[in-house]
Each structure stands twice: as structure tokens, then as C-alpha cells.
Simulated assay, not measured.
Amino acid sequence: MFSPEGPRLRELAVQALSSVEHGYDLLAPKFDHTPFRTPDSVLDATVSALRRTGPFDAGLDLCCGTGAGVEVLGQVCRESVTGVDFSAGMLTVARNRVRPPGPPVRWVRADARALPFGPVFDLVVSFGAFGHFLPRELPALFAGVHAVLRPGGRFVFPVVAPPRPGSLTYGMLLGFDAVMRVRNTVRRPPFVMYYRTFRFGDIRRELARAGFLVEFQALPEFGRRRDGSPKVRLVVAARAGA
């Protein structure tokens, strides 16, 4: 799962026993050499989809990590790009690594549940971060994103179709979530990272409650499952307005 440059088992164990913020501070220098980083294929497909509906002016990468989403925004935004994350370590790596073409980039350390912005963005993206939020936190999270978008702005993120019950992947994710629940029961502070708590039905319902108009777009680059459903979708949530 990991390249030779990635973290060792002991490093991952220390991270998992830390808080989310401190854990990612520790992981930051090697994060891009782990499978936790969103694959380039997903990032590239998202760029292609956004180019069909853009360009945009100001973009925000929510929970930007080491800046992969900022590089996406740099290809579709004309005026400015902002990356926000609460891990100082991840932001340090991002500042040193990311040199996207296009508009200037700023990096902001902040909690995604309390964004320090007004309605100044036309596009908000996020990649691979929602497992760090409990289901009860989604209403406030989505309401906060809605508040920083201009009228007509869009909140866009990819979601992978859930594995079928009984499959190897399903069992692995179920086991991972179970281990994390036990860990968070016996140790504080918790390390919130669950793979099976972010579901299509919950996404649509909570985005609609926050005031978004929601649609799912298939990413054709990844094909379809046997039942005809897309393997990867792009969630496009629009704030009503001009």
C-alpha cells in the first residue's frame, strides 16, 4: 500500500493514537506517498468536469491537506485560489510543494467547521476529507460552505460508489471503522476517520437542508458497475442565485 518513501508502521500507529490535527502534522512530510492522497486520476477527471462548466473566479479547497485540490483550482480559476486546513504541518508541506499555474494562492489555517470567510468564493472543492466529520457535524459543515459561496457558486467533490456487501473491500472498510470506534472509545482525544459514515442519501439530504441545489454527475473516465451505476460521481451542489 505504501511506497518506500511512505510512513512506517510505527509512525502510522503514533499518528492513529494522536488527535486528528496532531496526527496529520506528523504524517504531513510523507502524506503524498500514502494511499490516503486522492489519486491523480480522480483529480484530473474533476478538472475535466469543471472545465466544462467554468471558468470560475475565486476558488477554495476545503481541508486542502498538501494541496492537491489547490492544483485543481489553479487550472479552472482566474482570480484567486485559497487552501484551508487545520493542520499546520500539512499547510507547510503544501506551501513548499504547490506552485500551480494561474492565479495567486493563499494558505489559511482554520477549522472547516468555522470558516473565517464571507461569501467570496465561486467554487469550493474538497477531496477525501469527509471521513473526518461525524454525521452529526455535516449540517454545520455544509451550512458553512454555503455561507462562503457567492450566489450561484458551487460546492463540488467526488464520491466513489460504495463497495458491495460481502466484497473484500467492504470487509476491509468495515474492519477499519470498527477498529477506529474501539480506539475512540478507550482513548482521548479521538481520531475521527471513518470510511462508511458518508453516504449518498445523507449527502443529498444534508446539502439540501443547507440550501443547496444538488445533482450527481457521473465521471465517465471510471466507467460503470454491472448494475449500470457510475463507479465515481461528482457531487455538484449549487447555491441558488445569479
Rank of each mutant, 00 (worst) to 15 (best):
V98T: 09
T92R: 12
L43P: 02
E21Q: 12
D40I: 02
S229R: 13
G153K: 06
A240M: 07
P135R: 11
H132M: 08
F86R: 13
M1P: 11
R10P: 00
A240N: 04
R233K: 15
A13M: 12
V84W: 05
F198G: 00
E137Q: 15
T197F: 06
V42D: 04
A208K: 13
L138F: 15
R109S: 11
S167W: 09
G67D: 05
V214Y: 12
T185H: 13
A49D: 07
L174S: 14
A208G: 08
S80M: 01
D61A: 03
L134A: 09
R106G: 00
G211M: 02
A114Y: 00
K30L: 02
Y195H: 15
R187N: 07
F86S: 07
G166Y: 14
H146P: 08
G211I: 00
A88T: 09
R205Q: 13
R239S: 10
G6I: 08
F130D: 01
L123H: 04
L27G: 05
T66E: 04
P39D: 12
E137N: 09
R188D: 15
R225E: 12
A68C: 05
P39T: 09
F86C: 06
V235E: 05
V72D: 05
S80C: 01
R226T: 12
G128T: 10
E11H: 07
T92S: 11
T34C: 11
M90A: 05
F216T: 08
T46S: 14
R199Q: 13
A140E: 15
L17I: 01
G74E: 02
R233G: 05
L134I: 00
R78Y: 03
G59R: 02
F142M: 10
L115C: 02
G128Y: 10
F2A: 09
F36I: 07
P190S: 11
F212A: 12
F31S: 08
F121T: 00
A140Q: 13
V93T: 09
F130V: 01
P162N: 09
F191W: 07
L27P: 06
L27S: 07
D32G: 08
P119K: 06
L134N: 03
L138T: 04
E215T: 12
L141F: 12
V186I: 14
V120S: 14
D61P: 02
E21W: 01
R164L: 14
T34S: 14
F198W: 15
